[in-house]
């Protein structure tokens, strides 16, 4: 099984999101970066499937040179081949992003898709466009399933399950296929310090991409929504507060 997993680098925001002065991006200084939990799970899934079936786990990101850190993390976890599609930043729209990924895939095959499975996150953490994987699938003429939380691969088919209220919808699709996954499909392993040191030595295939932005959709600016600052009433600082808590439960009639 040759598997390509696409991950997007995003700021590792925590308690608060702070924007840059021009409101065009999240101020990432001092935060560090990560990828969506869905994509962490996609990488883990690729590694597990390759462990089970053999093959290679290629991991790809489109972004600036620094975004290769996320590739190093994936390699430290067990991915084989890192690919950087180098662009000025990660703000490309989903159409341009999908185009660049499709171009790369086509450049590697002679008219055939050189992977059995293309894994994506269900949605990117920052933009949440819910579409790059679907666009790649359509451009390559591949079947596509999204929101998947269980994958079984056989020689020529994938069985993929999507969680819905009360159970699971089961899809069977021929390979090669595009599958976007959700967190919970597996439990991603940590990258060890040693793994990370070794991963830094793995050469990264770097391809510069030229992104033609789509002018039909245009971001104006970002905004942090106002949250009403609730003035929390402090009920106490120890087990003695229990009585006040139960008073509230009674008041809310939830007992």
């Amino acid at each position: 099984m040759d598997i390509l997993t696409c991950v997007k680098r995003v700021p590792n925001t925590g308690e608060k999101i702070v924007l840059t002065d021009d409101k065009q991006a999240v101020d990432a200084s001092g935060l560090g970066f990560t990828v969506s939990p869905h994509e962490e799970c996609a990488v883990e899934e690729a590694i597990q499937q390759v462990e089970q079936h053999g093959g290679t786990a290629t991991v790809l990101t489109l972004g600036p040179e620094d975004a290769s850190d996320e590739l190093v993390t994936a390699v430290a976890r067990g991915a084989d081949e890192p690919v950087l599609l180098e662009a000025p930043d990660t703000s490309a729209d989903p159409m341009a992003t999908a185009d660049a990924i499709v171009d790369y895939i086509e450049s590697r095959g002679d008219g055939e898709v050189p992977f059995d499975v293309l894994l994506f996150g269900n949605e990117s953490a920052d933009a949440g466009n819910y579409q790059v994987g679907v666009r790649v699938a359509n451009a390559l003429g591949l079947p596509c399933v999204t929101g998947i939380k269980d994958i079984e691969l056989e020689d020529t088919t994938a069985t993929a399950k999507r969680e819905v209220s009360g159970g699971w919808e089961v899809f069977e699709v021929p390979l090669p296929a595009v599958i976007s996954v959700k967190e919970g499909i597996n439990h991603p392993r940590y990258a060890s310090m040693r793994g990370r040191m070794q991963a830094r030595r793995t050469p990264i295939e770097t391809v510069e991409v030229d992104l033609a932005g789509d002018e039909r959709f245009e971001m104006v600016e970002l905004e942090v929504p106002e949250t009403e600052a609730a003035e929390a009433e402090i009920l106490g600082d120890s087990a003695d507060a229990a009585s006040a808590v139960v008073d509230i439960l009674e008041e809310l009639e939830v007992l």
């Binding site: 609730a230 929390a232 106490g236 009585s243």
Partner: peptide, 24 residues
């Protein structure tokens, strides 16, 4: 989370939660 809460207990959950259970 304290800024976002209606009420807060500033204590160790390992003591506070069993105390709530006991009080109920």
């Amino acid at each position: 989370i304290i800024q976002k809460a209606n009420w807060a207990v500033l204590g160790d959950l390992h003591e506070v939660i069993p105390a709530i259970t006991e009080e109920i």
